[in-house]
């Protein structure tokens, strides 16, 4: 089985938010909510400040607390690449998953279910990249199968220094940031 993930090059990212806007239109995300977002982290004293700019979203964790805590099984790992999804009509909106997610990736959709990034699984099934990846003007985002050593994402991780978010949370996130 494939393990879908993203590799995002923070060196190239300019934080323009095109990924966010593209997700909104592609997935008809209601105004006021977002499935992805930009973080800019500044460390150090001016002018020797180091800044990391990165596009964040659900990490589609292999050890996903949101899946483990879901009382109805609405939150689950898809057989298709291990993508973490929410089955809308099985979701009771209890918000346990929101509490359990260390990345703040989930929100209550106005229609009552929990919503978040789906890796644009509808596009991936058609052989396309997720919307955010496909629009990025800097080409800083890459999507693919992390279990395939020959995939672009795997090769980037072999070649470049990288980190993931909150590895100490033990969630085995599947989004990696090149530095």
């Amino acid at each position: 089985m494939a393990r879908f993930g993203m590799v995002i090059d923070t060196v190239k990212c300019v934080g323009c938010t095109d990924c966010v806007v593209a997700c909104e239109t592609e997935n008809n995300v209601p105004v006021g909510f977002a499935r992805d977002w930009i973080e800019q982290i500044a460390i150090g004293k001016f002018p020797d400040t180091h800044v990391e700019i990165r596009s964040e979203r659900c990490n589609h964790c292999s050890e996903a607390p949101c899946v483990n805590c879901c009382p109805t099984g609405a939150s689950h790992h898809s057989e298709f690449g291990g993508v973490v999804l929410v089955t809308h009509n099985e979701c009771i909106g209890c918000k346990a998953c929101i509490e359990s997610c260390p990345y703040g990736a989930r929100f209550v959709h106005p229609e009552g279910y929990i919503d978040k990034c789906t890796f644009c699984i509808h596009r991936v099934k058609e052989g396309k990249d997720p919307a955010c990846v496909s629009v990025c003007p800097t080409h800083c985002m890459h999507f693919g199968d992390l279990d395939d050593p020959n995939s672009e994402v795997s090769k980037l991780l072999q070649k470049r220094k990288h980190h993931s978010l909150l590895p100490e949370a033990g969630t085995s996130p599947n989004i990696f940031y090149l530095t």
């Binding site: 323009c16 938010t17 095109d18 966010v20 806007v21 593209a22 909104e24 239109t25 629009v135 990025c136 003007p137 080409h139």
Partner: peptide, 13 residues
């Protein structure tokens, strides 16, 4: 654009 817009172009909707 080489096939890729900026956030404003995407947000033209």
């Amino acid at each position: 654009s080489n096939g890729r817009l900026c956030p404003r172009g995407t947000g033209g909707v």
